[in-house]
């Protein structure tokens, strides 16, 4: 990354941060009852949950901090948090 002096930063450079390694638990998208409501994608504080197709969602492991908001708010309990094993 090019560093500019004088307190300036290039836009959209935070993507270099690997915040995914903060994670204790990872979301597992069960894909049994998903209705495609997009709630998980909308409320993710990282914005790292996204849809692959209409009723299939997944997350970006590079950024997911494992907060569990998607699992807590899924209206059909189709997301489960499981302990991360390294």
């Amino acid at each position: 990354m090019k560093v500019i002096l004088g307190g300036l930063a290039q836009p959209a450079t935070s993507l270099a941060n690997n915040t995914g390694n903060w994670r204790n638990e990872r979301p597992v998208f069960l894909q049994k009852a998903c209705t495609g409501c997009t709630m998980c994608a909308v409320i993710c504080p990282e914005g790292c949950v996204y849809s692959v197709s209409k009723k299939v969602f997944t997350f970006d492991a590079k950024y997911c901090k494992g907060c569990g908001m998607c699992a807590a708010e899924c209206p059909v309990d189709d997301i489960e948090m499981v302990m991360e094993e390294k």
Binding site: S14, N17, T19, A41, E46, G47, Y50, D60, Y63, M69
Partner: peptide, 20 residues
Amino acid sequence: MEKHLFLAGHTACYGCGEAL
């Protein structure tokens, strides 16, 4: 990932309401 104007990689705490 979907295109956002406020991007991942920020260092807010787990479950931060303000980042959302």
